[in-house]
Design a protein around this nucleic acid. Sequence first.
DNA 1: GCCTGTTTAATTGGCT
DNA 2: AGCCAATTAAACAGGC
Length: 215
Amino acid sequence: MPRPCRESYGDQKPPYSYISLTAMAIWSSPDKMLPLADIYRFISDRFPYYRRNTQRWQNSLRHNLSFNDCFVKIPRRPDRPGKGAYWTLHPAALDMFENGSLLRRRKRFKLLKSDKDRLEHELAALANLQRPTTERPSYDPAAPVPCGVQRTSPQSPTVEQPRPKRSFDIESLISPEPVPSRAVGTSCYPATVYQPPPLQPQHFYPPPYRPFLTV
DNA sequence: GCCTGTTTAATTGGCT
DNA sequence: AGCCAATTAAACAGGC
C-alpha cells in the first residue's frame, strides 16, 4: 500500500481518488473537520500534481463533497468566523476503503433517504442552536430537540479527544477503529447501499465541536 | 467578482 | 465485457 507523504509522487498524479484525498485531509485535522480552503491546501501542500489545473480538480472536489453522502457539512460556530462551512466525514463512512483501494471503492457510501432527511434535520437544528438567541425567535429552549440533537449547556466540560498517533496516517484511514456499520445486501436494499447506524448527537455537540470521529 | 456549494450530464476507467 | 464509481465540465445560486 503506498504511503503518501510530503513531496511524494512529484508531478505525477497520486493514486488516490478525490474522496480519499478529502478524507485524508479531514482525518488529519485535530477536529476531524475542515473548511474547503483547508482541504485544498492539504492536498496541494502534499501533492505537487495538484498545484496545477486548480480550477479543474477543485471543481471536482467540490462536486464530490456535495454529491457523496460520506461528507457532511457542519455549519460554522459563531466564534469561528470565516468563509464556508466545515466538512467532516460521516461516522459510518470509515469503512469506505475496506477493500484497500484508495482509487475506487467497492461500494458507494449512500445514505438511505430517511437517514439523509434525519441528518439534514439535525444539522438544521444545530445551525439554529448556533445562532445568537436574538436571531432565533422560533427557538424554544424548553421544546424537545428534534432527532436527538443534544442540547448542552456551554459551560459543560468538553472531553478532550485523543489525537491520532500521527497527523497523517493512511493506515488509520483504511483500517480505523471499528465503527458499527453494516453493509446491507438483503432483498430490502440494493447490495451496493450501506445502511449506516443512526447518527449520535455527540457527533455534533456540545461546542466546541467534538471530533466527528473518535480515534 | 470571487468563493462556496449544488446539481446535471457525459465520459473515463477500475474492478469483478 | 459490463457495471458503476470516479472524473470532468458546466450552469447556476447565494453570500461576502
